[in-house]
Amino acid sequence: MSHTEVFAPWDDPEATPLISCQDVTKRYGEFTAIERLTLDIFPREFFALLGPSGCGKTTLMRMLGGFEDVSGGRITIDGQDMAGIPPNKRAVNMMFQSYALFPHLTVWDNLAFGLKRSDMAKDQIGDRVEAMLKLVQLQKFAKRKPHQLSGGQKQRVALARALAKGPKLLLLDEPLGALDKKLRQQTQFELMDIQEKTGTTFVIVTHDQEEAMTVASRIAVMDEGRIVQVDTPGRIYEAPNSVYVADFIGDVNVIRGRVSALNGESAELNWGEGKRPIRATAGAGAVHDASGAFVIRPEKVTIATEEPTDRHNRVKGVVEDIAYLGNLSTFHVRLESGDLISAQLANSRRFANRGITWEDPVWLSWSDTAGLVLGD
C-alpha cells in the first residue's frame, strides 16, 4: 500500500468487514460484561480496544478468539458465524501478555512447535520458521532458550509464533504490558511495521491511551461493556463525542456550565455569574439551555503575564504548580472561580518560560475554535 492512498475501508460502503459483531452480549450470571455491542473491523486494520479495567475489552477479545461463548447476538469472522467454533478451528491466533513460551525449547523450536501440529507440509516448516525469525529480526537468537532472552526479545518470539500459521486475525492482549516505557515505545513501532508487512488484521487490547494512539488505525473506547466511540486516533483526540472520551484520551481541561448559545458550528457556555461566556466549537450532545461541558487540551491554552485583549476567551488566575517535562512545561493555574486549568508550553530554549513562576498572577486565553462544548 503506498502512503499516498488513504487507508480507510470503514468509510467505504462497499468494503466487507473481516469481523462483524452484531448485538453481542455476554453475561456471567446476573452480571452483564458486554451489552448489545455492534462493531465492524476491516481486513488489514490495526484496531485498538481501549478502556479502563473491567470495561469488557478483554471479554470481547476472548469471544473473538473462541475462549468465551456469546450469550446473545452473533460474531462473524470472514463471513462465517463463529457460534460453537472452537479456538483451534478459527483463522485467529491470540498472543497473551505472559508470552507462554516453552522454556525447554529453543527459539527455533518454539516457532516450529505449532507448525509441526498443523497441516503444513514438513519440508516447508524450516522455511517458514526462518521467514518468521527474519520478520522479527531474531535470526541470531534461533538457538537460544527463552531464559537467555530479554523481555523485548521474548515478546518478539511470541509475536513470531502467533503469526507463523498466517492467521487472518491476531489478537493481542496487553502485549507490551511487561516492557519498560522506552522499550515499549520502540516495540510499538516494530509491531506497526510487522502488521503492515504481513497484512494481518491486528486487534489489540490496551488501557494505555498513548499506545492505542500510536499503533491503531482506529480505536474503540469502551466503558462498562459498551462502545462509547469508534474513530481514528486523530478524530478521537480532536473531536471526542463525550467528556468521558475526552478525559480518557490525553490530558484535558473541563469546565462545566450551561449551553447559552448554539449556532451551527459554534457554541457558548455560561459558567458562572458575571463571567464572560466561553466561546467554542459546538460538539456532540450540546443542547441549548441544557447543562454542558467545555473541554480544551492544555496545548491549546496560551499563558501570559499581560491581559490578551485580542481574545474573547481570557481568564485570570494564579500559577499553583509547574511540571517541567523537558520538552514541555505544564502550568496548573487556579482561576478565581476555583477551577484548575492547565496550559502547556513547548520549551524551545533551555531555560525558556522562566518569566512565569509559582504564585504569579497570569492570564490564560484560547481561540474561539480551540475547544469543544459537549453535552454533559
Rank of each mutant, 00 (worst) to 15 (best):
W358P: 14
P13Y: 03
A83C: 11
R276N: 13
L138M: 09
A352W: 06
A100Y: 02
V315A: 00
S20I: 10
H147W: 12
R218V: 03
P175Y: 01
G151M: 08
T25L: 02
L171P: 07
P233L: 00
L364C: 01
P167W: 10
R258C: 10
N263L: 12
T302G: 12
V252K: 08
H3A: 15
V254T: 11
I296K: 06
I75G: 01
A83W: 13
A293V: 00
E359A: 14
L133C: 06
L335S: 03
G375L: 00
R314N: 04
K57E: 01
G166A: 11
S367P: 06
A158N: 04
V230Y: 05
N263I: 10
G264C: 02
R235W: 09
D69S: 15
L340C: 12
V287E: 12
Q229S: 01
A158M: 02
E45D: 12
F189P: 08
A220S: 12
L170H: 09
M213N: 03
I296G: 03
S150H: 02
A284I: 00
S337C: 07
A33M: 05
E196S: 15
D69V: 14
S367E: 13
H3I: 14
A178W: 05
A282C: 09
K122V: 11
A267W: 01
G152K: 03
Q185L: 13
D310Y: 12
A8V: 05
K26L: 09
K300I: 01
L171N: 06
G72V: 05
L39R: 04
D119L: 13
S53Q: 04
E336R: 07
I75A: 03
G56H: 05
S98C: 08
L115M: 11
A48F: 03
A212P: 04
L262M: 06
A212S: 04
D12H: 07
E196M: 14
Q229E: 02
V215C: 04
E238P: 06
D247S: 13
L325A: 12
Y324H: 13
F31G: 06
G126M: 13
N253K: 04
I341M: 00
S291A: 15
N88W: 10
L176E: 00
E359F: 10
T281C: 07
V373L: 12
F47V: 01
L191P: 09
T214K: 11
V295D: 07
Y244V: 05
T4A: 15
A131S: 13
P175S: 00
L262K: 11
K275Y: 15
D81E: 11
D11N: 15
V228C: 10
P240Y: 00
D180Q: 09
R226L: 11
L335E: 03
F31W: 11
R226I: 11
D78L: 04
G152D: 09
D339F: 04
G151W: 03
D376W: 09
I341D: 00
H207F: 08
W10S: 06
M120Y: 09
A304V: 04
D251N: 14
S71P: 05
L183H: 07
E130C: 13
Q80Y: 09
G375E: 00
R62L: 13
K26I: 10
Q155Y: 08
A91F: 12
